[in-house]
């Protein structure tokens, strides 16, 4: 590891000022579970680290009926997993967090870190995308909001401009159900081979607000637009769901790597999309009946 300065700003403005001053050689760090690893491996050698954990503005989870959930970027996966608010309003996020890495890593790793690393396999990305979440970016020019899916530009690349950082994530209230299916060899500790998140709600037998997002099968987490279009407003039948799953498999562009071959990933997109749709349609029908 190369030597670096370490800064621990006590507020968001101080963090932004440091980011401005220290320029390109500086990296933001929160949980550090990914950044520190890459520094140890020599993949990254920042001249300075700006630790965001002491900036109170980046913490906390809150809910309002109008805005929905607000999740601070420095909220840890552990906090997300255990938050009663998240459990009540977006149980899918609790579940997703509970499967990530290990108890020890979840104590450290943050929501913001998971998104800002911009790994195509980031577990929080697909569920946040189908929940229609917004990323709140803050910089010298003030705040701006982006849909989470527009936040990812490529592997390791985000829409953050120079001097900007991710402040929080906003998840609007949703009357539908969301589900994230993670495919990995082990129950914990593994990076997703494929992740599929689906959101929908059934209204009078018709599927509404259909959103499908896929992880680890392209340069960024991506939406399966054609599948969504096919199902939106439809009365889901087995053959329609199968077709939607097929379209999702065609919408992605997986690669061969250590964790899986492209053909297998594409296949898993189809299988998991179908399974998620099946479960959500069934769950929503039950929900509709009561």
């Amino acid at each position: 590891m190369q030597p670096f300065e370490y800064h621990s700003p006590r507020s968001l403005p101080e963090a932004l000022r440091l980011l401005q001053e220290l320029g390109d050689g500086a990296r933001l760090i929160a949980g550090g579970t990914d950044l520190l690893l890459r520094m140890k491996q020599g993949q990254l050698a920042p001249r300075a680290l700006i630790d965001l954990r002491r900036a109170a503005e980046l913490h906390g989870i809150s809910f309002s009926p109008e805005e929905g959930l607000r999740i601070g970027a420095a909220v840890t996966l552990r906090e997300l997993q255990r938050s009663p608010l998240v459990r009540d309003h977006c149980p899918c996020l609790c579940e997703t967090a509970s499967w990530m890495a290990s108890e020890q890593v979840r104590s450290l790793a943050t929501v913001g870190g998971n998104l800002c690393n911009a790994s195509p396999a980031a577990d929080l990305a697909p569920p946040l995308m189908v929940l229609d979440a917004q990323a709140v970016l803050v910089g010298p020019q003030g705040e701006r909001r982006l849909p989470v899916e527009a936040f990812f530009l490529g592997p390791g690349q985000t829409a953050l401009d120079r001097g900007e950082l991710l402040k929080e994530v906003l998840v609007p209230p949703t009357p539908g159900n969301a589900l994230y299916l993670k495919h990995a060899p082990r129950a914990f500790m593994d990076i997703a081979v494929v992740g599929v998140a689906v959101h929908l709600r059934m209204e009078r037998g018709l599927a509404r607000a259909v959103r499908i997002a896929l992880g680890a099968v392209g340069p960024t987490p991506l939406r399966a637009g054609p599948s969504e279009a096919l199902l939106e407003g439809s009365a889901p039948t087995a053959s329609l769901l199968e077709e939607a799953a097929d379209l999702a498999a065609r919408a992605c562009s997986p690669i061969d790597d250590l964790r899986g071959s492209a053909w297998y990933r594409r296949r898993m997109v189809r299988v998991l999309t179908r399974r998620a749709l099946d479960r959500l349609c069934a769950a929503s029908l039950v929900g509709e009946g009561t």
Binding site: T33, D51, Q104
Partner: peptide, 19 residues
């Protein structure tokens, strides 16, 4: 390398001491 940091379990290899 698990230890409790402010009562929470962490892998101490992934924590900067200055933090």
């Amino acid at each position: 390398c698990t230890v409790l940091l402010n009562d929470l379990p962490v892998t101490s290899c992934l924590v900067l001491a200055v933090a």
